[in-house]
């Protein structure tokens, strides 16, 4: 509690700031991929239970985000992009974010276990631990590969959504996990290339700051090259039909093409970083459409439109 100015009125934090702590922007992609994982999975689930599973995944992600901001408040304070978050901006006490984060995490895991299955709950618990501890506390400040590992955290939702329906792990949900895992580094490094000043100020070893632009560009290209065959693997192993397979070929092909443009170029001062911004914007579109096509493929199979 602040004692600097005893006259100042200490207000309890606004509920909107608690909501902001869950990173609602990120949650949109979490919910979307979780819903897609669920819809694409073979089998049925009662709508109430489906809603509960999605809610648990979203709330768990929100809890992990709150814990992340509790831990990183000092770093957030020195970066322009994050300085206005509730804790660095002084609108909320650090301990409130910590308690809120633990409460959301615990509640979501317990509910998932009781309503859906303890396998799904266990993976949800691990994903929260993975993001809030393994990534935030341990690896992010230590290695420039932090984004590669952080990508794992974002890759869990479709996996959990799938398993909530089927009740067991097969290759398909693992492939969905791997696709997001491989997608994250080029997606994030494209962003890091045009906002790198911020990260160097906070002392986070982001790839362009540590290994230099050239190496970062090459690695974006490498990941995009792996993503092309990987995104088509669900089709190769017979997990999906042609609708998904050809969509993946087209979408990943364009992803690779935009990555080649970023990967083989050297930026000059004042060129506006256009190819990087375009790759970043496309990468978001890419993931949305790829997962939407996965669902479309499944429905086409269910209704006999494709074999």
């Amino acid at each position: 509690m602040s004692t600097a100015n005893p006259q100042a009125l200490i207000m309890p934090a606004d509920w909107r700031d608690f909501f902001a702590l869950t990173k609602p922007g990120v949650m949109r992609l979490v919910i979307f991929t979780a819903v897609c994982g669920m819809l694409a999975a073979p089998g049925t689930i009662h709508p109430v239970l489906a809603f509960t599973a999605i809610l648990c995944i979203a709330v768990g992600a929100g809890g992990a985000a709150a814990l992340n901001q509790w831990w990183e408040a000092d770093l957030d304070a020195v970066m322009k992009r994050t300085a206005k978050r509730p804790i660095p901006d002084g609108r909320m006490e650090r301990s409130s974010a910590r308690d809120f984060g633990f409460a959301l995490s615990g509640l979501s895991v317990m509910t998932m276990g009781l309503a859906i299955s303890w396998l799904a709950a266990g993976i949800l618990a691990f994903s929260i631990f993975y993001y809030a501890y393994l990534y935030t506390v341990w690896l992010k400040p230590r290695t420039p590969q932090n984004i590669v590992i952080g990508g794992g955290a974002g890759a869990f939702p479709p996996l959990i959504g799938w398993i909530a329906v089927t009740g067991h792990i097969t290759w398909m949900p693992v492939l969905l996990f791997l696709i997001i895992f491989m997608w994250t580094p080029p997606h994030f490094w494209a962003l890091a290339l045009f906002v790198q000043i911020d990260y160097s100020k906070a002392g986070i070893p982001m790839m362009p700051v540590v290994a230099g632009e050239r190496s970062t560009r090459r690695q974006i290209l490498a990941y995009a090259a792996v993503l092309l065959p990987l995104s088509m693997t669900p089709w190769f192993i017979g997990g999906t039909g042609m609708i998904y397979g050809l969509s993946a070929l087209l979408l990943s092909g364009l992803f690779l093409w935009l990555s080649i443009k970023v990967g083989l170029r050297t930026s000059a001062t004042g060129d506006g970083m256009k190819p990087e911004k375009r790759l970043f914007a496309y990468s978001i579109f890419y993931l949305f459409i790829l997962f939407a096509m996965l669902v479309a493929d499944r429905f086409a199979t269910v209704y006999g439109i494709q074999a």
């Binding site: 073979p42 089998g43 049925t44 009662h46 009781l114 009740g167 290759w171 997990g239 269910v302």
Partner: peptide
């Protein structure tokens, strides 16, 4: 959730519920 759980058959069995496409893994 309680209502759904109570109404649910004891265990998920193949062929239970709405008819769906052939199961692929």
């Amino acid at each position: 959730i309680s209502i759904v759980k109570i109404a649910e058959k004891p265990k998920h069995e193949a062929g239970e519920g709405v008819a769906t496409a052939p199961v692929h893994s």
